[in-house]
Design a protein around this nucleic acid. Structure first.
Lengths: 146, 146
DNA sequence: TATTGTTATACTCTATAACTATA
DNA sequence: TATAGTTATAGAGTATAACAATA
């Protein structure tokens, strides 16, 4: 049996508010102050999924191609990615993350997880409450992945 | 009894990933394309909490005073807020949200809630799963409010 | 012709430094 | 002297339009 419209609406409102507030709080934690959200999102994508072209990155990040060119310029100047011309289709440029880029992503993730773990520790949640949060996390990811 | 470090770390990682992905997806939904996140955050604060000075807004949004001046300039030009000189302390400027500003916030919230409700409907969650999400929302808010 | 990427240009948000007006 | 707000200036991210190189 599927859920009622009222339950859906109530859940949506609660979850929307909680999600925005927590995301905002966690977003402050970064490995380097010189990193923007846009740059970090690209690095995280490259680390997870390997090399990509400029236009593929632009589609995934929902920005225009000139925007992505500019973001990649910034990352390349800082040594976090490298451009490689694609030999098969020479219009294309492949972008790879460097070791320094990987390190930056890993460190940022570590800091955010640490911040959140500290916040969870402070409110002294029970194992049952943490289980609820993990179950909800899985449900949230299923929603996004659809 | 409080939770183990391992549970805290696992929960933090799961929740951090789920939160960022969902927030990112929902952030696309706005009432007007001309609204930035920075502007919307200020309007939402003014709607919830009433008039504020520039410097109070700057502290709450964690930006500098000149930044907030600029954000308020944009909002005032579009008619979503009004500046009023403070008669008691004439260095101060009070900022109030207008009816148009309130409408914009309400409409944006409505769109985001609708988008999320539609997403939840599509994955066909049970009432029990929605309850888990609502319980988790409350837990997330308690974490942020500490 | 269509696609990939870049450059040119402009607007917004961000910052720091310097300034005005008021307390 | 300190505080509230603004202006000046600069850097990053975003966009659209126009362009080069390649398919």
């Amino acid at each position: 049996m599927s859920a009622s419209d009222e339950s859906l609406a109530l859940t949506a409102t609660d979850l929307r508010m909680a999600t925005f507030r927590l995301a905002r709080r966690l977003r402050c934690a970064r490995a380097a102050d010189s990193m923007s959200d846009a740059q970090l999102a690209v690095l995280a994508d490259l680390r997870m999924n390997g090399r990509r072209t400029i236009s593929t990155l632009a589609v995934r990040e929902r920005v225009t191609a000139p925007s992505m060119t500019s973001t990649i310029n910034g990352l390349e100047e800082q040594g976090f990615v490298v451009r490689t011309p694609d030999e098969e289709d020479r219009r294309r440029v492949q972008v790879d993350i460097t070791d320094a880029g990987i390190e930056l992503v890993v460190e940022t993730i570590r800091r955010r997880d640490e911040l959140l773990a500290d916040m969870l520790r402070e409110v002294e949640y029970t194992e049952a409450e943490l289980t609820t949060l993990r179950e909800a996390s899985a449900l949230m990811r299923r929603v996004v992945e659809r």
